[in-house]
Amino acid sequence: MGFWSRRKGVTDDIKETPDNCLNKYEEGKPVLPVEEPEKSTKKLKIPLNKTTSDVKYILKTIFFPCPICSEINTVDLSELDPIMGGETMCVHCQVVLHIPGGYLTHSEVPKLKVYAGLPVAVRKFPLFYWNHPVINDLEQQGITRIIIQYGLWGFCQRCHHQFSPAVLINLPHTSGEIVDYRSLSSEEMNEMKSLRAGCCPYCSHRILLVIISDVPHYVISASENLAHRWEED
Rank of each mutant, 00 (worst) to 15 (best):
Q157D: 14
D137Q: 11
R145H: 14
C66R: 05
S70F: 12
P165G: 04
I135F: 02
V114N: 06
H106C: 14
N73T: 07
A121D: 10
P67V: 04
E79N: 14
Y103K: 08
P110I: 06
H132K: 01
S164Q: 08
G154I: 01
I135L: 04
I135D: 02
P110S: 10
I99L: 01
P100T: 03
I169F: 05
G154E: 06
P65H: 10
H160A: 12
C159I: 02
Q157Y: 13
P110A: 10
F64Q: 09
A166G: 13
Q157I: 09
G86I: 01
I146D: 00
R158N: 14
Q141E: 14
I143S: 01
E108H: 05
I148H: 10
Y115K: 09
M89Y: 09
M89R: 09
F125T: 06
I143P: 00
F155C: 07
M89A: 14
G102C: 05
T144E: 12
P165K: 04
L118Y: 02
H106S: 15
W130V: 05
P165Q: 04
H161F: 10
P67N: 08
V96S: 11
D137N: 11
V96H: 04
I99H: 01
D76R: 12
L59R: 15
L80D: 00
Y129H: 10
T174S: 13
I62Y: 08
Y103M: 08
D76G: 12
V134D: 00
Y115R: 08
K60C: 09
V91D: 14
S107A: 15
G101M: 02
Y115G: 03
I147M: 09
P100A: 05
L127H: 13
P165Y: 02
F155Q: 03
G151S: 04
I169N: 04
T144S: 12
I148L: 11
F163A: 06
K60M: 10
P172V: 03
P126A: 11
V95D: 09
Q141V: 09
T61Q: 15
R158S: 12
G117W: 02
V114I: 15
I135C: 01
R123P: 00
N170D: 12
N131P: 03
C156S: 08
A121Q: 12
G101I: 00
P65G: 10
P165D: 03
L118H: 03
F163I: 06
E79F: 14
F64K: 12
A121R: 06
G117Y: 02
L168G: 02
I99K: 02
V96G: 06
G101C: 04
H160L: 14
A121E: 12
H173E: 10
C66Y: 03
G176M: 12
L168Q: 07
K60P: 05
H98Y: 13
Y103E: 06
F64I: 07
L171N: 03
F163V: 01
E108P: 05
G85F: 00
L80S: 01
Q141I: 08
P67C: 05
Y129A: 08
G142S: 08
T61K: 15
G86C: 04
H106P: 07
T144Q: 09
W130K: 13
L97S: 06
I83S: 03
G86T: 05
F155T: 06
D137T: 13
E87D: 11
I99P: 00
Y115V: 03
P165E: 03
S107R: 15
I169P: 06
C93L: 09
C66W: 02
N170L: 08
T144D: 08
P119Y: 09
I143C: 07
A116H: 07
A116S: 15
L127Q: 13
D76L: 13
L127Y: 10
K124R: 14
